[in-house]
């Protein structure tokens, strides 16, 4: 492999990792506070992407420049709303019954995928990035590289920094961190923990929705994508460590890079590399790279 090809593969890995980080950080956030394994996280990704697309299409047809930006907002809002409904109607009152919550979200993911198929059909769809983010950018060593993929990295950095600030510099973040450590104590201090839980769920779901629109701009949106992103979120947080944003970033980087490098070196066996990473991490640190021992 030449140097330029290798650099391109690594950059591809980084851009993929960026998308994975955005999706998985929401999953990790929800798990961190509520111990809820949201098996419908891939469905939230789909909800965000499809609702975003429903908003995007008519506006794009009229050639409005803000179509895509509005799609981002709509996708995040739709996913957040759906997440809030999930938490308030179904998951909130079975807090602590982790397996039951996982089963409920599995049931939801089946229904959501099927209903989206009924509404939007099986035709693959793809967003067109706005002109400002479209085209290619000349990079040293690599040459021309799609601008949007670089935007993906920017979005992931913004999400990462934003989450760090939120968790470490705000009152809500303080409550979330306290809740991760000791939920009953936080409630005893007079904090409305269920409300915090709903807010965190909304935020995590909105991140899945954001990932949905960004992901469906970079690669086509179709049925089955929810399973792929659920799997990715699972592997990323298993490798990185549950509930840790830094761990999620490390996990996303490892998985994204492994996937791209694997596909370049041994295309039909590349999935194995991802799982090798998972197995090795589990063997050495069952709680994940940045996870705390329970």
């Amino acid at each position: 492999m030449s140097g330029a090809t290798a650099a391109t593969v690594i950059l591809n890995g980084l851009t993929l990792a960026a998308l994975y980080f955005v999706v998985a950080s929401g999953f990790s956030l929800i798990f961190g506070l509520m111990r809820t394994v949201n098996m419908a996280h891939g469905s939230l990704y789909l909800v965000g992407a499809y609702i975003g697309y429903a908003v995007f299409e008519p506006l794009y047809d009229r050639d409005l420049w803000y179509a895509w930006y509005l799609a981002i907002l709509a996708g995040m809002a739709a996913a957040a709303l759906f997440g809030v409904l999930m938490q308030t109607v179904l998951l909130g009152w079975m807090q602590g019954q982790e397996l039951r919550q996982a089963l409920v979200t599995i049931a939801l993911s089946i229904i959501v995928a099927d209903q989206l198929l009924a509404r939007f059909g099986g035709t693959p769809r793809q967003f067109f990035a706005p002109d400002a983010l479209f085209g290619s950018t000349a990079l040293p060593l690599i040459g021309n590289y799609p601008t949007f993929r670089l935007v993906q990295i920017g979005v992931a950095l913004a999400v990462g920094i934003g989450l760090w600030l939120l968790l470490n510099r705000t009152r809500l973040g303080l409550m979330v961190r306290a809740g991760v450590d000791d939920r009953p104590m936080l409630a005893a201090m007079g904090v409305n923990v269920p409300l915090v839980a709903v807010l965190v769920f909304a935020l995590g779901a909105a991140l899945a929705g954001l990932g949905g629109v960004i992901g469906a701009t970079a690669q086509p949106l179709a049925q089955g994508v929810d399973a792929r992103f659920l799997l990715t979120a699972l592997v990323v947080v298993i490798v990185g460590g549950m509930g840790s944003i830094a761990g999620t970033a490390i996990g996303a980087l490892l998985v994204g890079l492994a996937e791209q490098i694997g596909q370049a070196l041994f295309p039909t066996y590349s999935v194995i590399l991802t799982f090798l990473i998972m197995v090795v991490v589990l063997a050495i640190r069952p709680q994940g790279i940045m996870g705390r021992a329970r």
């Binding site: 394994v37 799997l231 592997v235 298993i238 295309p267 066996y269 194995i272 991802t274 799982f275």
Partner: peptide
């Protein structure tokens, strides 16, 4: 692989294994 994990972690790890194996099978001729 799953020996040191429990409950919900075990569910997640085994699901990840299952879906990963599926993707491997699907892409390997």
């Amino acid at each position: 692989i799953a020996v040191r994990t429990n409950d919900i972690y075990l569910l997640m790890i085994t699901l990840a294994l299952a879906v990963g194996f599926y993707r491997f099978v699907e892409s390997n001729i």
